[in-house]
Computed example of a mutant assay.
Amino acid sequence: MTTVEMQDITFQIGKLPAKKQFHVSRRIAPIIPALLPIYVGLARGGSLMATLEQSPEILKPFAEALAGMPDDAVDYLIDTCMSVVKRQQGSGWANIWSPGGPMFDDIDLSLLLPLTVRVITVNLGPFISGLLTSQSSSPASQAQAG
């Protein structure tokens, strides 16, 4: 489990089952280029909030890419990602999402998008990293470099 603090709330990011990871990756394939700057910032050891605070403009392409997705794909993406997020409640953890939406009144867009990005990077980071590595070592990229 990955723990992250946003807006003075501690969240726990869980692991998506492999099949859900696959379905999320299919839906985000068109927006992976918009996620790359965020992923690179996180891969360099930065926190999501620090990355966004240092470069808030990197969330804009992600938001624009989401805006271009069909509603059902965005709903699936958000519902699936939020299904593995919990928030600290006293000494325990509580799910933040139900099939009907957020379980807490303070879960709004300012938390929803960063949490969605965090779930994606935690669960699909190695997959995205593998794509980047395979693209940079492909014969076409080596021919371009040479």
Score class of each variant (00 low, 15 high):
1 M>V: 13
4 V>M: 13
6 M>K: 10
6 M>T: 06
7 Q>W: 12
7 Q>R: 15
7 Q>V: 10
8 D>S: 14
10 T>D: 11
10 T>L: 15
12 Q>V: 06
12 Q>D: 03
12 Q>E: 14
13 I>F: 08
14 G>S: 10
14 G>E: 08
16 L>H: 04
16 L>P: 08
17 P>Y: 00
20 K>H: 12
20 K>C: 10
21 Q>E: 13
22 F>T: 15
23 H>T: 14
24 V>C: 07
24 V>Q: 08
25 S>Q: 14
25 S>L: 12
26 R>L: 07
27 R>L: 03
28 I>A: 06
28 I>V: 12
28 I>M: 09
28 I>L: 09
29 A>E: 10
29 A>F: 08
31 I>E: 07
31 I>W: 05
34 A>W: 05
36 L>P: 04
37 P>I: 04
42 L>S: 03
42 L>H: 03
44 R>Y: 06
44 R>D: 12
46 G>D: 12
47 S>Q: 03
48 L>C: 00
49 M>Y: 06
49 M>R: 13
50 A>W: 02
51 T>W: 02
60 K>W: 00
60 K>F: 03
61 P>I: 02
64 E>N: 14
66 L>D: 01
68 G>L: 01
69 M>A: 10
72 D>C: 01
73 A>C: 07
74 V>R: 15
76 Y>Q: 06
77 L>F: 12
78 I>Q: 13
79 D>L: 00
79 D>S: 15
79 D>E: 13
80 T>E: 08
80 T>C: 09
81 C>F: 00
84 V>Y: 04
84 V>S: 06
84 V>K: 05
84 V>D: 02
84 V>W: 02
85 V>Q: 02
85 V>F: 01
85 V>A: 02
87 R>K: 12
88 Q>D: 05
90 G>M: 12
91 S>G: 03
91 S>C: 04
93 W>C: 12
95 N>K: 13
95 N>I: 09
100 G>Q: 15
100 G>C: 02
102 P>M: 07
102 P>T: 07
103 M>N: 15
105 D>G: 15
106 D>M: 05
106 D>G: 08
106 D>K: 03
107 I>D: 03
108 D>L: 11
110 S>H: 08
110 S>T: 14
112 L>P: 11
113 L>V: 15
114 P>D: 06
114 P>H: 06
114 P>T: 06
117 V>G: 14
118 R>P: 00
118 R>M: 08
119 V>R: 07
120 I>D: 04
121 T>F: 05
122 V>F: 10
123 N>I: 09
124 L>H: 15
124 L>E: 14
126 P>H: 05
127 F>A: 14
128 I>C: 05
128 I>G: 11
128 I>K: 10
129 S>P: 00
129 S>A: 14
130 G>D: 04
132 L>G: 11
134 S>H: 00
136 S>Y: 03
137 S>W: 01
137 S>P: 01
138 S>A: 13
138 S>G: 05
141 S>E: 01
142 Q>R: 12
142 Q>C: 07
143 A>F: 01
143 A>H: 00
145 A>V: 02
145 A>L: 09
145 A>N: 06
145 A>G: 05
146 G>E: 12
